[in-house]
Design a protein around this nucleic acid. Structure first.
Lengths: 184, 184
DNA sequence: GTCTATAAAACGATAGAC
DNA sequence: GTCTATCGTTTTATAGAC
C-alpha cells in the first residue's frame, strides 16, 4: 500500500517556493513534483494542471497573509507605529526567508497580460496590503491621505524588492521600512 | 532571389515589444518570427538562440535609452525641473506606448535568479536611470541626498508600473511623476 | 535571405499497474 | 497515493532547396 508522502498543504508550500524562485512559465510540473519528493505522474493526483496549482498557491498565500501579516494592522494591542513595524517585519521576513522576492509582485509582472485568471488573487493581495497600511495611517491622517500613503508604501516596497533582486542590496528594504514608519 | 523583409534593427524593435508583453519564457521563437513577418526557420539566420536575441534586445534598449531618454538629464538647455519633467515624460511615453510596462523591470523579476546573463544589461539600465536622476537632484541637494532621491524615484517608478499593470490605473504614474518633481 | 521539412528534446497531461 | 510508461503537443534548433 502506498504511503502518503506529502499533504496538499505541504505541496502548496513547496510549490510556492519554486514559483517564487523561477517564475510561472520557467517552472515545470517536474520541477514542482521533485520539490515535493514526488514524480510528475503522481502530482496530477493533487492538481489537474499547472494553472490550477498556481491559482491555489496564490489563494493559499492570500489566506496566510491575511491571517499572519495584514491582521497585525488590526490588532488592538500596541501603538500604530509598533504595529506598522511588526507588519513590515513580518512581510519582509516572508519575502527574504526564501529566494525570489515577492511571489505576488513577480507574478504580476510575468503574467498580468497573458493569464487573466491570476489577476483576481493578485488584486486581492495588493488590496489587502493597501487596506492594512491605510488602516494604520488613518490613525494620524485623513482617510484620503492615509489611502494615498498606503499606496505609496506598497509601491515603495515592490520597487525596492525589484532593485534588491537585481543588486542584492538588502539595505534598500531597511530604508523602505524607515520611510514607511516616518510617514506615520 | 529572396528579398530581405526586415533589418536586424527592426527585428530588435519588434522582439522588444513581444518580450515586453509576454515575458521571456512565455515567448516562443515562433511568436518572435511572426511578429517580424518571418517564419521560424528564417529567424535563426539573424540570431542563434532566444537568449542571444534577448541579450541583444536589452543592450539595444540600453543604447536607445542612453541616447534619447537619460541624455535629457545632461542637456545644457532648460532648468533642472524642466529636464526632469521631460525625462520622465519620455520614459513614461516609451513605457505606455506599447503594452507590458517596462521591459527592464519585467525581466528583472522574471529572470534575475535563473538567467545570469541578463543581469549585466539590466544593471546597466538601472544604474543609468539612477545616475541620470541623481545628476538632476544634485542641482539642489548634496551628493548623498541626490543619490538617495534618485534611488527612491527609480523604486517609485517600478513599483507604480507594477500596480498599473495589475489595476490599469495610469493615474498612479502621474502621481509618481509629481512626487519626483516635488523632490527637486 | 527566406522558405519547407524535420530532427531532437522538453513539456503538459493521461492511463493503468501496484 | 505513488509509480512507470506513454501519448500528443510544443518548442528549440538545424539542414537544405530555392
Amino acid at each position: 500500500m502506498p504511503v502518503q508522502k506529502v499533504t496538499r498543504e505541504e505541496i502548496l508550500q513547496k510549490a510556492m517556493r519554486v514559483f517564487k524562485r523561477q517564475g510561472f512559465h520557467r517552472t515545470t510540473m517536474d520541477d514542482l513534483a521533485r520539490a515535493c519528493g514526488l514524480l510528475k505522474g503522481s502530482f496530477y493526483h493533487y492538481f489537474s494542471s499547472k494553472e490550477m496549482l498556481m491559482k491555489e498557491v496564490l489563494w493559499h498565500a492570500n489566506t496566510y497573509n491575511e491571517k499572519h501579516i495584514f491582521s497585525i494592522a488590526y490588532q488592538e494591542s500596541g501603538t500604530p507605529k509598533q504595529r506598522l513595524m511588526d507588519l513590515l517585519d513580518a512581510l519582509f521576513d516572508g519575502v527574504l526567508r526564501t529566494e525570489g522576492g515577492c511571489l505576488m509582485g513577480n507574478t504580476v509582472l510575468e503574467t498580468a497580460l497573458v493569464t487573466e485568471e491570476f489577476k483576481e488573487p493578485l488584486r486581492v493581495h495588493f488590496n489587502n496590503a493597501i487596506a492594512a497600511l491605510a488602516h494604520l495611517y488613518r490613525t494620524s491622517h485623513s482617510d484620503e491621505k492615509a489611502q494615498e500613503l498606503a499606496q505609496q508604501v506598497t509601491v515603495d516596497i515592490q520597487g525596492s524588492l525589484l532593485l534588491v533582486k537585481l543588486f542584492g542590496n538588502e539595505q534598500l528594504l531597511t530604508d523602505c521600512r524607515n520611510r514607511a514608519v516616518e510617514r506615520l
